[in-house]
């Protein structure tokens, strides 16, 4: 007498054997699979490098922000002491990195130096320049620049506040455009992965057609028959992602000296730290999901054609 069959055991078994089948299929002929693996690796490498570069540029942009994010012009006739008071009230706040006070005489001298009307300025009876405070903002200050401007402009001794954030807006727009371009490229490359993995699975199914038909005749469900092919796709994604991690590491090693020189010329240091453990895992998970999906699409279509006749 046979013991009872178990659907759960059959399900577990088909997952284990499917996973092993997929892996051995890959290991049996790894060089034969290089084209598919290469496409998966490159398709993951380019967006990974792009996002990594954007992240670093974004971080570096904060550090490289030039001084003078806000210029606070005091009202005409306000003494230099008032400007010092404003600067003192700002120093120590988390939004502010540093302040610099310019007296009306300093401001006039700078205007003479930077403009072409030095002679005209000499003809003036009195110094028209107000005292001013140049405020260098921290990243927090840059985030809240409008609120800070409003606060300073409301002070009775302040005539107006000039915000110089156009460069920041341009940089943000540029980064946003670059991020969209990277995401678009990632989507196009993901489609390429789906097509390449799908085509590989299609060939696998064609090669195994007779076996598939036999399994169906013996009572294998569509899911059971499909499972080994899904695992082939998954392993393509995982191994391709591991390959792309290696390529990311090699790329960063190659890029690092040039970037370090560039950063040093701005008085900064820039270390490309790679994806890290979480990023690496995310990339492998992304690769696995793409491989699985490509196999799912291809197997759903082509397994229907492999019916007993």
């Amino acid at each position: 007498m046979l013991e009872s069959p178990s659907a759960a055991r059959a399900w577990r078994r088909s997952h284990v054997s499917g996973a092993l089948f997929g892996l051995t299929r890959l290991l049996r002929d790894p060089f034969g699979q290089l084209l598919t693996l290469g496409v998966v690796a490159v398709a993951l490498l380019l967006p990974a490098l792009g996002l990594l570069a954007l992240e670093r540029v974004n971080a570096a942009a904060s550090a490289w922000r030039p001084s003078g994010d806000l210029t606070v012009f005091l009202a005409a006739g306000e003494p230099i002491e008032r400007a010092v008071e404003v600067a003192d009230s700002l120093n120590g706040r988390p939004e502010v990195i540093a302040t610099e006070v310019r007296s009306p005489d300093d401001a006039l001298a700078e205007l003479r130096r930077l403009s072409d009307f030095a002679e005209a300025l000499s003809a003036l009876d009195a110094n028209p320049m107000p005292a001013l405070v140049i405020v260098r903002l921290s990243p927090l200050g840059a985030e809240n620049i409008d609120a800070l401007k409003q606060e300073l402009a409301s002070l009775p001794s302040v005539d107006w506040v000039q915000v110089d954030k156009r460069w920041l807006e341009r940089l943000e727009a540029l980064l946003d455009a670059a991020q969209r371009a990277v995401l678009l490229a990632a989507a196009i490359l993901a489609l390429a992965v789906l097509l390449v993995v799908g085509n590989t699975i299609r060939l696998e199914i064609a090669e195994k057609r007779e076996e598939i038909v036999t399994l169906k005749l013996l009572g294998a469900t569509d899911a059971t028959v499909r499972r080994p092919f899904l695992y082939i796709g998954l392993w393509y994604g995982v191994v391709g992602a591991l390959l792309s991690l290696l390529l990311v590491w090699l790329s960063l090693r190659w890029l690092q000296p040039a970037l370090a020189d560039l950063a040093a010329s701005y008085g900064n240091d820039l270390a490309l730290t790679g994806l890290g453990a979480r990023g690496g895992l995310a990339l492998v998970g992304y690769g696995a999901a793409l491989g699985w999906l490509g196999a799912l699409v291809a197997s759903s279509r082509h397994l229907r054609l492999a019916e007993p006749k």
């Binding site: 046979l2 013991e3 059959a10 013996l218």
Partner: peptide
Amino acid sequence: ALPLRLDGYSEEA
């Protein structure tokens, strides 16, 4: 063994 595996019989069976 195929039909037995598809049915989910134990390895002992």
